[in-house]
Design a protein around this nucleic acid. Structure first.
Length: 755
DNA sequence: TCCTCATAACTTTTT
DNA sequence: GTTATGAGGA
């Protein structure tokens, strides 16, 4: 196809390789783009949109691009600005979740959904599930709410309702989940709330049920693009299909080798389904890597080739070979961290890297602590992505809960959260009585509070049952209800920032924070920061600003706030690093049990996902890769020897540098491959795991029937001892009435005694 | 009702 | 070493 608009403006096809060009020019009908790491995927997407707008004269309003994070959307929008100018503003760009949230706010009425619904995050979800379990009279000890949540979430992502879960339950636990799910839905409906999965599920429902709405969206969006398609779940794919239902101009971009979210119900099989659902789909593979050196790409390729279930790709690069990989075995975590900081320091002083060029990637957030400490100690600036998240901080969540309550007074999770912040004489007991009373009368909790307030003002509540509360509690509740009512009235008049200011005063929250002995300044700063974010919504009409702000804040991820800087190195989890690139990457904790993680070693599928995670890490790097491991790692208190990650063995030895200590004198230029001696196997300090050797544990493995002594539980007999990843879970029956306990061998203060 | 202190259980990744 | 929960005292 030739460009219909060949005159003027620089060609959007310029500088693209043949595969990229083909992807950009294929605009009609279904298209699958398989994009290897560093293959210019974002470039292809943005140029494709620019091609549609500039060359094919498609109104940008009719194009939707869905990305994985808000940050990716923002970045894409910036690039679009450069390519198509201000017209790009009318493009629809965002995450599935944000798109659905907006759609439901506009058209959710068809499903009986009010516009002022609240979005529940994982924590809210969990407390609602606990509530639902209470209702179903289930023991949270036997049925961990976390596990129930994940089952419910998985079901929703497969578009299954509670009936389906109950019907197809294949175990007692799943049956329990079905029951909880049912109650959970009732509570959500009563609270006028949706969880993350609901946003997708209800949106699908809406498009399926209402022909009018469906056709409306199908007409509007003539071209649809989905990025990171390998990480979409069934609901998201369904949604995309519905949106593309009319014109079938659906383009999905992804890389099965970078699928790392199956635990969040992402389904790589969507790629296969796509080819099945759209047999006429064209497939384009982007295989040339522009990001990494030859060495890095080769390492990544050999690593990923160990995966069985895979579409083989032929990645290549024209970049130079570059420096070999560096493996370093540190003694412990501190040593590992200080090696990284030293090395960054050296790279900055002796080569022309900036600290901002460097990223440290790890499997679990807990690993960031050691790195942070080393950085603080050495005065190295760093940026921590994620970690203790801003929006997870208590005071931030408290203020958010107040705002959510003003937005939607039916939201009982928020209500329960703020009633005691600051303490105002309404404790657990009163709340329990109040909830029971409200339930008996079948009125919302907040309405019950309002009734109490009214009866205090003299309205004789003869027709209603008297609330079973102490007069003290009743007074406190009445005052609270009046205060919230007053704020809700004000929310009609005030712009968001003024509303926040008023709420901070009226609720007593400001004084509470500022007079508390727990870091009052820091916590107040956080409140101010939140208020600062609110300014962005201050231009909107009073109630709308509140709604938009809450919607946005419910759907932000922490990577979203990530901005590059020159002088600070980045600390980030492997998951969050997806889609980013850095000149230098340090991967720490290359150990069995961490990468692959001990909780993901049960099946080959899980191992393969861990391997993909490792692959994602390595392929983030442009020039240098360091693979680190600690010989000893502490899990909390106790520390034990570790075993090198199997992934280290899957990278060909000739790609590694000699151990650092054996390297020549420091140079003042960027070293080239010639500075290193000929290929050398792994460092001698890197123990090669011997096959069939049991994982190293601190103590010998116990077996059934062994007698043991525990520092606190006393003596007992081993009932069972099963391997869980790198560790062992021991079930011990203790005497002296202590009973049966399950303990983890690596840290339980347990010793064997002769029976 | 609220706060303090002790202890138990636990650390995967997140829209 | 943390965070969630519970008992007991003010």
């Amino acid at each position: 196809m030739t460009s219909p608009n060949s005159a003027g403006t620089p060609d959007v096809l310029q500088g693209l390789n043949p595969a990229q060009k083909e992807a950009v020019e294929t605009i009609d009908g279904p298209l699958l783009i398989i994009a290897g790491p560093g293959s210019g995927k974002t470039r292809v997407i943005t140029h494709r949109i620019a091609y549609l707008v500039r060359d094919c004269r498609v109104n940008p309003r009719r194009i939707m691009a869905v990305t994985f994070t808000n940050k990716a959307a923002r970045e894409m929008r910036n690039r679009m600005d450069r390519l198509v100018g201000p017209r790009g503003e009318s493009l629809t760009m965002g995450t599935f979740h944000s798109f659905c949230a907006r759609m439901l706010r506009m058209d959710g009425g068809y499903l009986g959904l009010p516009t002022n619904y609240t979005i529940y995050d994982g924590d809210d979800q969990l407390s609602t599930i606990k509530q639902a379990m209470e209702l179903a009279e289930l023991d949270p000890k036997r049925n961990p709410p976390q596990a129930v949540r994940s089952v419910i979430s998985k079901a929703k992502s497969l578009l299954q309702d509670s009936q389906a879960v109950s019907k197809f339950a294949s175990s007692y636990f799943e049956e329990v989940c079905g029951r909880v799910y049912h109650h959970y839905e009732e509570i959500l409906a009563r609270n006028n709330a949706l969880d993350f999965d609901d946003l997708l599920m209800k949106a699908v429902l809406l498009l399926q049920d209402s022909e009018e709405v469906r056709e409306d969206y199908q007409r509007r969006y003539q071209y649809l693009m989905v990025d990171e398609f390998q990480d979409t779940n069934v609901a998201q794919y369904k949604l995309a299909q519905l949106l593309a239902g009319g014109h079938r101009n659906i383009c999905v971009v992804g890389d099965p080798d970078q699928s790392i979210y199956s635990w969040r119900s992402a389904d790589i099989r969507n790629i296969l389904s796509f080819q099945r659902d759209y047999p006429d789909a064209k497939t384009v593979s982007l295989e040339q890597n522009y990001r990494s050196t030859g060495v890095i790409l080769e390492a990544a390729k050999s690593l990923i080739s160990a995966n069985g279930m895979r579409l083989d790709k032929d990645l290549f690069t024209e970049n130079s070979q570059g420096a070999p990989l560096v493996v370093h075995e540190a003694y412990d975590v501190e040593d590992e961290a200080s090696f990284v900081v030293n090395e960054v320091d050296r790279l900055v002083r002796q080569e022309r890297f900036q600290p901002g060029d460097c990223a440290v990637m790890y499997r679990v957030n807990a690993q960031s602590r050691a790195m942070e400490e080393a950085c603080l100690h050495r005065g190295m600036k760093y940026r921590l992505v994620g970690g203790v998240r801003f929006y997870q901080r208590r005071e931030v969540k408290d203020l958010m809960a107040y705002l959510r309550l003003l937005h939607n007074p039916m939201d009982e999770v928020s209500l329960a959260r703020v009633i005691g912040v600051p303490p105002r004489g309404v404790g657990a007991k009163s709340m329990q009585d109040l909830v029971a009373w409200a339930q008996r009368q079948e009125i919302p909790l907040f309405t019950a509070m309002q009734r109490i307030a009214e009866s205090k003002k003299g309205a004789p509540p003869e027709t209603v049952e008297q609330a079973p509360l102490s007069s003290r509690a009743a007074t406190a509740i009445a005052r609270f209800a009046d205060m919230i009512d007053g704020l809700i009235k004000q929310s009609e008049q005030l712009h968001i920032v003024d509303l926040i200011n008023l709420a901070l005063e009226e609720t007593g929250f400001r004084t509470f924070i500022q007079n508390s002995d727990d870091r009052p300044d820091e916590r107040w700063e956080n409140i101010l920061e939140l208020r600062n974010t609110a300014r962005e919504f201050n231009a909107e009409a009073p109630r709308d600003g509140l709604a938009s702000m809450l919607e946005r804040l419910a759907l932000v991820a922490d990577v979203d706030g990530y901005e590059e800087t020159e002088e600070a190195m980045t600390l980030i989890t492997l998951h969050q690093a997806k889609g980013l690139e850095f000149p230098v990457v340090f991967m720490v904790g290359m150990e069995e049990g961490l990468l692959p993680h001990s909780r993901s070693m049960e099946s080959e599928e899980e191992i393969e996902e861990e391997r993909r995670l490792c692959y994602v890490g390595v392929t983030r790097a442009q020039q240098r890769v360091y693979l680190l491991r600690a010989f000893r790692r502490g899990f909390f208190g106790a520390s034990g020897p570790t075993k090198a990650s199997r992934f280290l063995q899957e990278i060909p030895a000739h790609l590694f540098a000699k151990p650092l200590t054996a390297q020549g004198p420091a140079t003042h230029r960027r070293p080239s491959i010639d500075d290193y001696e000929s290929p050398d196997p792994l460092s001698p300090r890197m123990p090669t795991p011997v096959k069939n050797q049991p994982p190293a544990t601190v103590r010998p493995t116990l077996k059934t029937g062994d007698y043991v002594r525990h520092t606190t539980f006393g003596e007992g007999v081993v009932m069972e001892c099963v391997a869980t990843g790198a560790d062992h879970e021991v079930t011990v029956e203790f005497s002296n009435g202590v009973g049966v306990k399950k303990l983890l061998l690596s840290y339980a203060p347990l010793e064997r005694v002769e029976g």
